[in-house]
Amino acid sequence: MENGLKFKNSGTVIADNKNSRSKKLKGERKRFSFLSIYSVLIYMFLYIPLFVVVVFSFNSSKSTVSFERFTFSWYIELFKDSALMSAFLHSIEVSLIAVVIAIIIGTSGAFFLVRANFPGKKFFMTIAQLPYVLPGIIVGIALLIFFISLNFKLNAFTIILGHVSFTTPVVLMQMMSRIQRLGKTYEEAAQDLGANPMKTFFLVTLPLIKTAIIGAAFLAFTISFDEIVITYFLTGTWNTLPVFIYGMMRFGLSPKVYAVSSLVLILSIVMVYFMAKFTGKTEEASLKK
């Protein structure tokens, strides 16, 4: 599922490049015709499977080859499926709680890592990334062993802790770059003008990193919402949506799976859109001429 996010991102990057190119190279199009065919092929490779999923989610027959007639019935069935709906709500719950915790830990950690100096700082920053960078299967097994050895029951709580473990590094990285760019002058100015550390944080620092926090939250939510590998290891009877969909597939592909995938796809696109909107924007960006 992380792969899913990655190719969505790279898709937007390609689109940006293509836009700027077409502006620059007006009249030189012929020379680049090979490049455009190449780009179109890549786009097709990336998006046709998604497109097929969306299209066949409206197919009245269960066939994945021929389209019979247009229907919403699979979507209606989704909403009638109480197990699926509760898995969906579980996913929202897990992601929301995990993101809130990750934001708190990640942001305060980012302040610490940017501003404090201690021996082994570089090394610590590297290992702080591990839960996100390591293959999910390793993190999943590690967490499972950890929880079992502590006699934890696998439930919503363990899943949330699992999600906190890999969303925190994401928040940490996002916030570190923001805090680095922010510098210390604004806070020093606030203190110089009579604001105690508490007022400095709430009146100056927080408003200045607000958009970065929102952006990081959207990113972390997107990653958390469709995570399956780690979750799979930490799931008892309490399911999240990706795990539930995976379970559905054991009984074969069905338009119902397509329908739910389409909805998740749309949600992810919306999230990525907001994430890009907030992380791209900084409070002083407009200051730079």
Partner: peptide, 20 residues
Amino acid sequence: IPAYRRNVNTVFQDYAIFPH
């Protein structure tokens, strides 16, 4: 005594006008 309790004020090199 910390900066916020000293009755002196600073004009910083890059001015540090709060952008928000």
